[in-house]
Design a protein around this nucleic acid. Structure first.
Lengths: 124, 124
DNA sequence: CGTCGAGCTTGACATGTATCGAATCCGCGT
DNA sequence: ACGCGGATTCGATACATGTCAAGCTCGACG
């Protein structure tokens, strides 16, 4: 559990991703970033991601996620795995329960990437 | 061409989408937003989107997009249709050529949605 | 130990998607 | 009118994905 997450975007020293409105995304970067966007490209996963990202205390138990959906527990687990492998969330087992927390680094990269031309982004 | 784009997020008066780190995304909103993320969840489409978003002059001809990829022209056209129907780009035919331009409104919504907790977003 | 509950994994299936070639459409020149 | 080149659409096919039921793993607690 909590694999290193295939993407090397997370630990890459390269600034990597200015807004796509300012610079084209190369083929290699596109392949990696598309994994993250694809992970968000499902209604269930998007809701899961939002529930994890907005969790008070910074983390949330799977047992608090599952009851919010119509789909089966195994399906939720499968979606969570997708989010994990995309590098968007991190999981940790404590006692009988598994807790998920967001990984803001990638979220911020995606947000920056989508910033339209002329928009300001988190001015220091 | 240039269909109304199924999403009602574009012309909706509702503020709609605070950062997901601040508020859970509802099932209905998730279904619509997931369409946009899914559209970006393919390497070719992500590059296409970045080429359109970064186009000098705010628009770019399909004939300038197609040669950058290995895939066939019909495949590019299909991907562009996906981006159009997701509300991310707009197309216009002029003479023999079709020009694509970005739709910053949705881009900004997605960027805002992904803004992590504690981050500042384009302060007015 | 044994078993119980929470979550993950596996196997299977139906649906969706990416891709291509061929056909079609649409302006433009000749 | 005719053909040409750019772009989209159509039909077909191989592959990926979402979903579930069933089985498995890991701690906890008697």
């Amino acid at each position: 559990m909590s694999k290193p997450a295939a993407s090397n975007l997370l630990d890459s020293a390269v600034p990597c991703c200015p807004p796509m409105a300012q610079q084209r995304v190369g083929a290699a970067a596109a392949t990696e970033l598309a994994v993250a966007f694809k992970a968000l490209g499902d209604p269930v996963r998007l809701q899961l991601m939002s529930m994890i990202a907005s969790a008070p205390g910074g983390e949330i138990c799977v047992c608090d996620l599952t009851p919010s959906f119509e789909v089966s527990g195994s399906t939720i687990s499968h979606h969570l795995k997708t989010l994990r492998e995309a590098g968007l969330v991190d999981a940790e087992r404590r006692a009988s329960w598994v807790y998920y927390r967001p990984r803001p680094a990638l979220m911020r990269q995606l947000a920056t990437l989508l910033t339209p031309a002329g928009d300001d982004l988190t001015p220091s």
